[in-house]
Design a protein around this nucleic acid. Structure first.
Lengths: 340, 340
DNA sequence: CTGAAAGCGCTTACAG
DNA sequence: CTGAAAGCGCTTACAG
């Protein structure tokens, strides 16, 4: 059963394809009578325009691409939800690709999206990405790009971010306010901007509150997993058994650390207070519950799509367009792990 | 900067579009010399075929649609990951849409995908879906459909499932083996096949092991959330304070119940033993850790895509095709919540 | 080995 | 108010 075409409708009604097309698109220069006839027949035949032909004519696919480091991830899945809910409202579909934190894969995914001629790309960059030519190439081809969360300052495009440095500062200051004197930090890899910024916020908070910044208290993690949390928590106990607080880059790692401490009989928050980052759902149900920085994933997804949509529209009309960087607010959520 | 076309390459080299097209596709009837010239120029110009034109000619989009009830969900995001990893290998892109457990939305999403002319659809149906015309319509248009996890037995297409009934039976029998005498069940809504099957497995296990099946011990949940877990755990305590085991349809709900019991000072597993379903990551890190049925999300996604891919290929070649139902194995994972 | 031509199904500037 | 025609960028059957 082949799909119905404009031609078939035109032949059935004995009118031209042009008129059928115009009638369905409600052009003002088609008589009401003709419009009615065309629409009724289109309805009964369940006519759906052939997207391929429409795309080819209009050079628009009404599809956007999304590249994220990891799909099975509370924060990113919240972002995905925000994006697709907003995209649907505007009639856009979303193709999702995963970079697995690899630069090579990220490059490949973007290539795939460009070949598919998506109308724009949303991206949160991989930890492994240090070179941004692949993204600049997309921008150079006048294809709208919006970066979110894991961005590159050096790339010239719209962005949606949080103030990682400030949020990390607040998290660390909270530990200081609770009386912690020797605070460690589990940070992310060296490249990503947000792990740099969170580290700087931590360092600043220490220095501004009379605590010594001690590099040996900063642990650099690779894949930000639960297992790494366990591993570095145990290592920290060996290295510095007098630490009384930790600010951890990501909730999942913090949850690993909590597990390790629970097993070793370390009391949280009495012996060691902990603050995580991101506010994964899990953090509110583990024991003890984890204090953390709430990061608005859903809202970030919505905002990123809106920026992209605006750019697509403006460019289509050849109107002037300015890149914007939207900063979303974060919140310190105090729970048991730091509430002493 | 407009993308390069075959025509431009042809004009630059002073040959025909036909030959350029054939050269790039490695047709045997083009001379090696011409092929080399064409390829080199295509490379330097970074030629990418216009997907819209290719789609229109070949009636293929190399894109598939995926409809799931919920994106922010450990099980479904694992499935998504399995699907996109497999799809990428075969050169397919995946458009993801969320039904939010609503029949109306699910219908709309499928419509969107059909309008976009995807090459096939993967779907896990919404709790609210009782009528399957929207899916049968897709199948009637010769568009491949594969259902996974939340399937409809009545729909004639390929499926990827687990044996929910057997898994639930094993979970319940495990509680019986541990000495539980009065076992409650938190089940899902009435429509979905898997909540029916899990209930039947529970009931069977009781009956085959000399325990009385008591309908008042079965609670019907709506949205399978953490909050519902809390609510029904508290209700259960009021209704039946002598219950000593619960088999719960989904881990997230079980985690809510554990939280409620922890707060009330009920000891798990001593007072009440609990087994969940799905093996969310969270279940291994809460306290007590949750016994559960491991449900292979990633593998389910991979398998579903493979079935879809095969069907797409076979149909394209007009070769005979048979619907298959693949059943994936599950595992009982015993943890603290039932280990007495 | 090469190329002219038709056609996929639309949209839209233009003529009447 | 209606329609003939061009064209989006490919692919492929066919002719030479």
């Amino acid at each position: 059963m082949k799909p119905v075409t404009l031609k078939q409708i035109a032949e059935t009604l004995g009118i031209s394809v042009t008129t059928v097309s115009k009638a369905l698109k409600d052009y003002p220069d088609v008589s009401k009578k003709t419009k009615k006839l065309v629409r009724e027949l289109a309805d009964t035949l369940n006519y759906k325009p052939n997207a391929f032909a429409v795309n080819l004519r209009t050079s628009e696919s009404k599809t956007i691409g999304l590249v994220i480091p990891e799909v099975v991830h509370h924060f990113f899945s919240s972002v995905v939800k925000g994006i697709i809910s907003q995209a649907e409202k505007k009639g856009y579909l979303v193709i999702i690709l995963q970079s697995s934190e690899s630069y090579e894969l990220e490059k490949k995914q973007i290539d795939l999206l460009m070949s598919q001629r998506v109308d724009g790309i949303l991206i949160s960059i991989a930890n492994g990405t240090a070179n941004f030519n692949h993204i600049n190439d997309v921008i150079a081809q006048d294809k709208p790009v919006v970066m979110f969360d894991k961005i590159a300052k050096i790339v010239n495009c719209s962005k949606v971010i949080i103030d990682d440095r400030k949020a990390a500062y607040i998290a660390t200051k909270h530990l200081i306010d609770k009386g912690c004197k020797k605070i460690a930090h589990f940070r992310g890899p060296l490249l990503p901007q947000n792990s740099i910024d969170r580290f700087l916020g931590y360092k600043n908070a220490l220095e501004e509150h009379g605590l010594v910044y001690n590099p040996s208290l900063v642990y650099i993690l690779e894949d930000m997993s639960f297992d790494e949390g366990v591993f570095f928590a145990e290592k920290l106990l060996k290295d510095h058994n007098d630490v009384d607080g930790i600010f951890i880059n990501t909730d999942l790692v913090a949850i690993g650390a909590i597990n390790a401490f629970n097993k070793k009989g370390i009391k949280i928050p009495e012996d060691i207070a902990i603050v995580g980052f991101s506010n994964w759902f899990m953090s509110s149900v583990i024991s003890p519950t984890l204090s953390t920085i709430d990061q608005p994933g859903y809202n970030m997804g919505k905002t990123a799509f809106k920026l992209l949509y605006k750019e697509i529209k403006q460019r289509k009309k050849n109107k002037p367009f300015e890149y914007k960087t939207v900063e979303l607010p974060t919140d310190l959520v105090v729970r048991e792990s730091s509430n002493k």
